[in-house]
Amino acid sequence: MGVYPWVAWFAFRRYTAYPLGSGAEALTNTVFGFIRASVLIALWRARPGLGGYDTADAVTFCFLTQALIGPVQVFGGMELTERIRNGDVAIDLYRPTALQGWWLADDLGRAAGSLLLRGVLPLVAGALVFPFHWPGPAGAAAFTVAVTLGVLVSFGLRYLVTLCSFWLHDGRGMDAVALVLSLFFSGMTVPLVVFPGLLGTVARGLPWAAQIQVPADVYLGKHTGTGLLGALAFQAVWAMALLAAGHVLTGMARRKLVIHGG
């Protein structure tokens, strides 16, 4: 372990050092939450019980996703990308630690800060205005685990995209694809439970589902007993696979490295 908990802790402090910006984002996410909620309410009025959700489930889901935008960084991106482009990554590569480990720790700290500053407001606001579900203590514990795993998966995905900057001169195309996949397959746009047939099955099996859909379902108590364990295992397996891929790709990047700038 060594330095990593410290990296996470300092990252947490770093991301919470300027709370005003986060506050503004929390407010924006809340406002969009209300807009999305009214659309979802209309949808569930027309199709009650759609995807196994009732209206309160759908609304809760909506505000949960709004709260998780920051922590799982649905819109993608990492500070490391910019550092690769401008050459500051030399500093990261020089440190006597693993590149992925360092930035994972950093991201966990960031996610915790983000949950606090950008997650609480949408949830509370949604709960005050709409019919809402609150989990019991066990549910809350499971949700905590699911969000943590969701952050790991999100990091794993973003880290892989970021590492491509070592090879690509212009990562914008890559970022755009990553963004669409993330928005569509995480459940951010519409809950994955309403995706029909094969598309739904596939979507629910992809790693993006582990970012938002699974934590939300855990929160809503849609998984119980072994089902719950299965859901968490699904996340954990994706997290491990992505981090393993990240590890391999980091090694490749180190070997054929291009560092931009002096």
Partner: peptide, 22 residues
């Protein structure tokens, strides 16, 4: 032209982190 220090934190904190790193 680059820095190992963390922009948003006091210098002292960066040095603490470096103590942990090494």
């Amino acid at each position: 032209q680059r820095t190992t220090l963390w922009w948003d934190l006091p210098l002292r904190d960066s040095l603490t982190l470096i103590r942990r790193l090494y």
